[in-house]
Amino acid sequence: MSHARAADGAALHYEVSGSGAPLVLLAGQSNDHRWWDPVCDRFAAVFTTVVMDWRGTGASDAPDTDTYSTPNFARDVVAVLDHAGIDRAHVYGTSMGGRVAQWLAADHAARVDRLVLGCTSPGAPHGIERGPAVRKALADPVTAHAALLELMYTPAHLATHPGPFHTLGSSRLPAHARRRHLRASARHDAWDALPRITAPTLVVHGTDDDFNPTANAPLLADRIPGARLLMIPGGRHAYFEEFADEATPPVLDFLKDRTEAQS
């Protein structure tokens, strides 16, 4: 367990496992490093794998300040890389982590080797927003938990996996941090920055993702020069967990530059 210091002094918790070339795994909005628990070992078997708690989550500091934005989260990742002594790493970001990874690759290009963007979006106004029925279900305290589970996983998976689930929000998340995470993700707009990404890029998305609509995947792949697109049939928002057997091998091959990912 280690802590880096962000530019504003906030402590950023991160953990390192495995060996090989460095790989940073970035979690979704309001979540911490445990987002990756079900699959982290698969990556650590090949790479020196870094996972972190966003500011406001887990064992990181949670300042109630205007420092929660996807570009600033990218600067927090750079602080972690600096503290870990890593000059350049592969980056795999999912959901809000994918939004942060876009800024990391655009604004800190020298730090990014290969880039994987999973179940993410370029942001408003060019991205495709979730539908009104989804927003309504998530806003209702009575239905929000069940709705989020069903957006993350298929009914078949939920019927055979009782949890715990690590994609539903950090267990250590103050109310102010939850609000600020939501605002940071909602305000993300990297559209103009995407053409500046020079890292080889793979865009991955589940075909049945209504939480972050699947239509965002080709938008990203078309906007980022030379990007490849990989769709996971039947995958919902947590495709990387439920469909790990389908998604992880091609991601590993892409990161190892062993094969061309096909849509």
Score class of each variant (00 low, 15 high):
residue 119 C to Q: 11
residue 177 A to C: 08
residue 252 L to I: 13
residue 198 T to D: 14
residue 83 H to E: 14
residue 150 E to S: 15
residue 6 A to K: 01
residue 223 R to P: 08
residue 107 D to L: 15
residue 236 R to G: 05
residue 118 G to T: 01
residue 83 H to V: 03
residue 85 G to W: 08
residue 42 R to A: 02
residue 124 A to I: 07
residue 19 S to A: 15
residue 215 A to Q: 13
residue 34 R to M: 11
residue 21 A to E: 14
residue 97 G to T: 03
residue 78 V to G: 10
residue 64 D to N: 12
residue 93 G to C: 03
residue 212 N to P: 01
residue 112 V to G: 00
residue 93 G to A: 07
residue 40 C to Y: 03
residue 148 L to I: 00
residue 162 P to Q: 06
residue 103 W to Q: 09
residue 160 T to K: 09
residue 145 H to S: 14
residue 179 R to S: 15
residue 61 D to V: 02
residue 11 A to D: 14
residue 112 V to D: 04
residue 247 A to C: 06
residue 29 Q to H: 09
residue 94 T to R: 07
residue 137 A to M: 12
residue 133 A to T: 10
residue 183 R to I: 11
residue 140 D to V: 00
residue 234 G to F: 02
residue 157 H to E: 10
residue 147 A to T: 06
residue 202 L to E: 06
residue 240 F to M: 10
residue 90 H to A: 09
residue 90 H to E: 07
residue 153 Y to E: 05
residue 105 A to K: 04
residue 92 Y to L: 15
residue 170 S to N: 13
residue 196 R to I: 12
residue 209 D to R: 05
residue 42 R to M: 08
residue 135 R to L: 13
residue 92 Y to S: 05
residue 97 G to E: 05
residue 79 A to W: 10
residue 227 A to T: 03
residue 182 L to G: 13
residue 39 V to I: 14
residue 260 E to Y: 05
residue 214 T to F: 15
residue 78 V to M: 07
residue 29 Q to G: 14
residue 204 V to H: 07
residue 85 G to F: 08
residue 239 Y to P: 00
residue 4 A to V: 07
